[in-house]
Computed example of a mutant assay.
Amino acid sequence: MDDHPEPSTLRVFVALAPPDDAKDELARALQPTYARYPRLRWNRVEDWHITLAFLGEQPSTAVPLLRSALAAPAASHPALHLGLRGGGHFDQRLLWSGIDGDLEGLHQLAADVRDLIRACGIEFRDRPLSPHLTLARSRRDDPVSVPQAAAGLTGFVGRPWRTERLHLVGSNIGRGPGPIRYRDIEAWRFGAAVQARGGGALTEP
């Protein structure tokens, strides 16, 4: 968690993050694509995430409300088993890797998170969930690279992994030149309440 004081407003979202070894596996598979399409604006591997609810620009006063609200769904939800699979693009501009695994559970988690955020009185644009991991964006003068890069990911199937934490993330997008940077405002471990009720640790199936 970042201990720096919050700015008066910040752009925030709620997300999941694949574990490092799953991200490293995809990054290795992308090495030829990195070399072939160097003009794409590639996201940093450490910033890869699966957005559950994008809240946009919010006043810093929303952060304590979100912290209180989001601890509950993380504690009450068991970990999800997911994986990275294939690739695609949105409007020839945004390159993504797809999500496989417990998609029903993922959609339910996103719905619960969004319901709790709305119950706090925080307004946001409630877009349909399309689970994906954003990898890169094209430049305005390069509409071809993203679809070609997506085609190169068609056969990728990553190892399955288990979600560890629910993340409240802030970004610097729209705050001057330079690459987008993300930082955890706070993160909560999944299944704490489930584990307490069961009297033991969560285990892999």
Score class of each variant (00 low, 15 high):
153 L>H: 01
133 L>R: 06
139 R>G: 10
188 W>M: 02
169 V>N: 07
91 D>Y: 13
158 G>Q: 01
93 R>C: 00
193 A>P: 04
126 D>C: 09
119 A>I: 01
109 L>R: 02
114 R>P: 04
182 Y>H: 10
105 G>R: 03
179 P>M: 06
172 N>H: 12
138 S>R: 12
124 F>A: 05
175 R>Y: 11
138 S>I: 00
168 L>T: 12
120 C>T: 13
97 S>I: 00
135 L>C: 03
106 L>D: 05
98 G>P: 00
173 I>R: 14
114 R>V: 01
98 G>L: 11
92 Q>K: 15
192 A>V: 14
177 P>F: 09
146 V>T: 01
99 I>S: 01
103 L>E: 06
163 T>Y: 03
142 D>K: 05
157 V>F: 14
147 P>D: 02
143 P>S: 03
155 G>S: 15
192 A>G: 12
151 A>D: 12
133 L>D: 00
96 W>M: 11
105 G>D: 04
102 D>P: 02
191 G>L: 04
132 H>K: 13
161 W>M: 08
148 Q>G: 00
156 F>T: 08
187 A>N: 11
125 R>T: 06
131 P>L: 09
137 R>W: 08
103 L>P: 07
196 A>N: 14
138 S>L: 02
186 E>D: 14
133 L>Q: 02
131 P>T: 06
94 L>S: 09
165 R>K: 11
195 Q>H: 11
154 T>M: 11
160 P>Y: 02
180 I>L: 14
91 D>G: 15
183 R>P: 09
101 G>C: 05
156 F>E: 02
195 Q>M: 15
140 R>K: 11
181 R>G: 12
174 G>Q: 11
160 P>R: 11
133 L>F: 04
113 V>H: 08
135 L>R: 01
104 E>V: 14
113 V>N: 00
100 D>G: 10
148 Q>S: 10
130 S>L: 15
155 G>E: 14
162 R>Y: 07
170 G>L: 10
113 V>Q: 01
167 H>I: 13
179 P>R: 15
103 L>C: 06
108 Q>L: 13
113 V>F: 08
195 Q>Y: 07
178 G>D: 12
112 D>I: 05
93 R>D: 00
163 T>S: 14
112 D>P: 07
106 L>S: 04
137 R>G: 07
158 G>I: 03
127 R>S: 09
140 R>P: 00
141 D>Q: 12
96 W>Q: 09
141 D>H: 12
98 G>M: 07
137 R>F: 02
114 R>Y: 10
134 T>G: 06
114 R>A: 09
123 E>I: 13
175 R>V: 12
184 D>I: 03
126 D>G: 08
112 D>K: 08
110 A>S: 09
137 R>P: 02
161 W>N: 03
175 R>M: 13
